[in-house]
Amino acid sequence: HNLTITQGKLFFHYNPKLCLSEIHKMEEVSGTKGRQERNDIALKTNGDQASCENELLKFSYIRTSFDKILLRWEPYWPPDFRDLLGFMLFYKEAPYQNVTEFDGQDACGSNSWTVVDIDPPLRSNDPKSQNHPGWLMRGLKPWTQYAIFVKTLVTFSDERRTYGAKSDIIYVQTDATNPSVPLDPISVSNSSSQIILKWKPPSDPNGNITHYLVFWERQAEDSELFELDYCLKGLKLPSRTWSPPFESEDSQKHNQSEYEDSAGECCSCPKTDSQILKELEESSFRKTFEDYLHNVVFVPRKTSSGTGAEDPRPSRKRRSLGDVGNVTVAVPTVAAFPNTSSTSVPTSPEEHRPFEKVVNKESLVISGLRHFTGYRIELQACNQDTPEERCSVAAYVSARTMPEAKADDIVGPVTHEIFENNVVHLMWQEPKEPNGLIVLYEVSYRRYGDEELHLCVSRKHFALERGCRLRGLSPGNYSVRIRATSLAGNGSWTEPTYFYVTDYLDVPSNIA
């Protein structure tokens, strides 16, 4: 807008934040220059609390790290170098490059900038070799853009010569660093050979998330399962459950009422301010606690030095998902009996873990797994792929695949051998790939016309006998059925096997 004052003059007093240069501009645009008398524009009460600059400061050096910015700028000295009290560095987070010096300023003089007072450097006698002032900004957020400017702080001049310097606002972004852990990993099994893994992005990506790394490792069953005799009275049979499938998407929606109208769909109840505040506090606490764990609990591995020492970490090797089922080394339970199943799973520490690289999504279907087997899954978020990966501390989750139908069934015939004193040795093959492992066998036998009897055969007993022995049988026709019990439950009964026990007292003698 054009402003013209045809008559009258300007009068400025007691404006401590208004620089004289701005008042002189007002004289020019209003056409009143030359009308004012000496005392109409006070030299001592206008701009006496402001830094009124008329020179431009330029930054000469900028260096960044993930949490620091090192700045240096060209030296500046007023005509009387004693008038320079120091520099004021202003900075704040700036997602967009549209910041002005006066953003967030209120009537009390406060604003949204963080201000650092910096002492002037030592003055050199040689004007050509003056030290460049600077400042190291610490405690910054990774991968965050900051708006920065600097200006001088000078003393009051009796001659009211307006001098000083100020830089333009520059924008500097800190470097990326390792992201925080992925949030809320959930693993479920939808079949006997697959596990579905879902997660949420890290709360602090500290860069642009480029991919996720998912490692999985087959877990050995508890050692007590191999040692305890679950045929003993009072000892509860062990059981394991597989990871249940995901709930429906509708039930997972946030901010939804727990109660549904019987007449149909209901609208979600909005969260109160107290609920939102509580969630923010919980989120802040979780982030602080995660940072504490990362800094205190997890110790970084030592990389190899120039002395030739090897990095103890196993090298990563990509495998196809079809090879995942046989990740671990199978060892027989008892070496003397080769027909026992290889369900003991000690994992070799030198073995390469299978892994998958996930790009542009937060889910993965891990296939080719062994049925009813526990897996430990390790999830890392990465925001750099080359020249070397920059990934987060791992988040861990466990899951067990679903049982395989008929995996616990005894394959092959049940054979028998009759000894003296009416002892019958029953023999059968253990299931080759049971659900988890076989903890015991149930032997059901009966003599024709009598009630059915049951015998429990422990895992250890089966390994020693290759089956079991029935003792003290009365003469007669017998039928026997056997079924295995694994961590997933009972298998199917075998087809009945028949044998006849004679009275050993009636056996004919070869003595003449």
Rank of each mutant, 00 (worst) to 15 (best):
P205H: 04
P205E: 02
H211Q: 07
F215S: 10
F215A: 15
W216T: 05
E217Q: 15
A220V: 09
E221P: 06
S223V: 11
S223C: 14
D229N: 14
Y230S: 06
L232N: 14
G234K: 07
L235Q: 07
K236Y: 15
L237D: 12
S239D: 10
R240V: 12
S243L: 10
P244M: 13
F246G: 10
E247C: 08
D250M: 12
S251L: 13
S251W: 02
S251Q: 14
H254V: 07
E258F: 14
E260K: 01
D261S: 12
S262N: 08
G264S: 06
G264R: 12
S268T: 15
S268C: 15
C269S: 04
T272R: 13
Q275K: 08
E279F: 04
E282Q: 15
F285D: 07
F285Y: 09
R286D: 14
T288K: 15
T288L: 12
T288S: 07
F289K: 04
F289T: 07
E290V: 05
E290R: 11
E290I: 15
H294E: 04
H294M: 15
N295L: 04
V296E: 08
V299Y: 13
P300T: 13
S305F: 11
G306C: 11
G308F: 05
A309H: 14
E310Y: 15
K317F: 13
S320P: 06
L321I: 06
D323R: 11
T328V: 15
V334G: 11
A336D: 14
A336Q: 03
T340V: 05
S342M: 06
R353Y: 12
P354W: 10
F355E: 08
V359A: 09
V359T: 12
V359C: 13
N360D: 03
N360G: 07
V365L: 14
I366A: 04
G368I: 04
H371A: 12
T373S: 10
R376T: 10
I377R: 00
E378M: 05
L379K: 00
T386R: 14
P387Y: 07
R390V: 10
R390A: 04
C391M: 03
A394E: 07
Y396S: 13
S398A: 12
A399T: 08
R400K: 06
P403Q: 06
P403R: 07
P403F: 07
K406I: 13
A407P: 02
G412V: 07
V414L: 08
N421E: 15
V424A: 07
L426I: 01
Q429C: 15
E430W: 03
E430H: 13
P431T: 03
P431Y: 02
E433L: 02
G436Y: 01
L437E: 06
L437P: 04
L437R: 14
I438D: 01
V443Y: 01
Y448M: 14
Y448T: 15
G449Q: 12
E452A: 12
S458T: 13
R459P: 05
K460E: 05
K460A: 11
F462D: 02
L464G: 11
G467Q: 04
R471D: 06
S474V: 11
G476A: 02
N477C: 07
Y478T: 01
V480W: 05
R481Y: 07
N490A: 04
E495L: 04
E495H: 15
T497N: 07
Y498I: 14
L505C: 07
S509C: 03
